[in-house]
Design a protein around this nucleic acid. Sequence first.
DNA 1: GTATTAACGAGAATGGCTTATCATTCTCGT
DNA 2: ACGAGAATGATAAGCCATTCTCGTTAATAC
Lengths: 130, 130
Amino acid sequence: MPEQIHVMERRTRQRAALKEAIEQAARPLTPQEILAEAQDAVPGLGIATVYRNIKALMSEGWLHKVEMPGGVDRYERAGLHHHHHFHCQECDRVFDVEGCPGNVESLAPPGFQVASHEIVLYGRCATCSS
Amino acid sequence: MPEQIHVMERRTRQRAALKEAIEQAARPLTPQEILAEAQDAVPGLGIATVYRNIKALMSEGWLHKVEMPGGVDRYERAGLHHHHHFHCQECDRVFDVEGCPGNVESLAPPGFQVASHEIVLYGRCATCSS
DNA sequence: GTATTAACGAGAATGGCTTATCATTCTCGT
DNA sequence: ACGAGAATGATAAGCCATTCTCGTTAATAC
């Protein structure tokens, strides 16, 4: 009687390309951006695979969702230290921003409990400024 | 020959109710929230009318759009002084937050030009905390 | 009051992003 | 090399916020 071994995750070129694209970017990427990057390595890659793996990588804690105002969700490696984001109004890319003003919770009105916060800077990135 | 007089805007109960709801709320409202509030005054009011008037009030500068991460657009009176927002994770309402840490632009990396910024606090509002 | 026509209400249609379906391909333990 | 079934790719379907259509209502000028 053959043992039934449950394979939870297989190593595929697609998944490797997706993870590689995400790590190389070093900034939050939209599903479309992930697709475009990963297609350099795996030409036929489809958008469904991107979404499937985003969901999988999220649930295994490898990936983290970044929600930006008025835009689609973006994703970056989980486990990065506390940071914020810069949204370029020209190229629509989002970049990580180090540091935090601190003392942000004190802005909340009395009785409001602050669990976390997000700061988003808008403007033009270095590339679009030059 | 009757003169052709162009009426640009009529005073309707619906529009009055919408503006009233927005001013009373004193916080950014979603189209659905505006609808719910205004229906207290005008029961039959439809969602299309809400969107129509949002668009109109926006273009005449009376209303201002507030985009929140991972949510639908909200709207509040234009002309309010610089402030930020608190998003209650329990009731999903958004509140205004006075004050600003300042010195926020200095967070941006060299070469990045900051035009504006938004700070969003997450947690539980006073009502949901008690 | 009457005519004009902006504004309304209900529901259909649109447009995006995301998820589901399913036949096919590919990984991996044996 | 083989076989089970996980993963993929193409596309259909689902979701939803927003916009459009159109017959009806009602605000304004006279």
